[in-house]
Amino acid sequence: MSLSEKLYKWFDERLKLRELLPPIVKHPAPEKVTSNPLYCLGGTAFLCFLILVVTGMFLAMYYKPTPVEAYNSVKRIMTEVPMGSLIRSIHHWAANTMIAAVMLHMMRIYFMGAYKKPRELNWVVGVSLLLITTTFGFSGYLLPWDQLAFWATKIGTGIAGSIPVIGVYISLILVGGTDIGAETLTRFYAIHVLILPATIVVLLVLHFMMVRLQGISGRL
């Protein structure tokens, strides 16, 4: 028995691989999906998300979410931390690529009519994912605490605040007071690294389970 066979047997005796693997490994992927690159967009968004998680973890080791330290900690990442500039730039580009991929993915679903019965609910989960993804971008934009970050957030929260009825509350929850300050920065940080990641993971699990359950819609 070769080493790989021995290893397989060892795991098989414990994890029942023989029953577990075939449905995953042999699951047919439709021909059209394999040949048409438009079907890669969802997967591209997901890959970007994974890259964001990994690079984000490294950034969180050096970033400090207070008005006094935020800017300098980012500056330190860019100038002193080994590979820091590369990691932050990858985080930046993966974020923009993810948003673009999600939007294009949604356009493919729309123009192919892939949201029709039985996939209505997955479309609804999808729009929530779009909202979460753009909110990720909005909350991340403030964190470097530079001029653009500060003023774009001021205008952005101002716009959200002028939505009738709920706007005042949205703005109060986001800003944590009347002016963008220390309270806002810690909130945006908590939203960016705790609340949104937890939410998106739940939504992604639902999204992928439904794709698996319903299959990918067949016709162009």
Partner: peptide, 10 residues
């Protein structure tokens, strides 16, 4: 059923 006629995932 076209779905079924395709490449295996792996």
């Amino acid at each position: 059923p076209v779905r079924v006629r395709g490449f295996p995932f792996f």
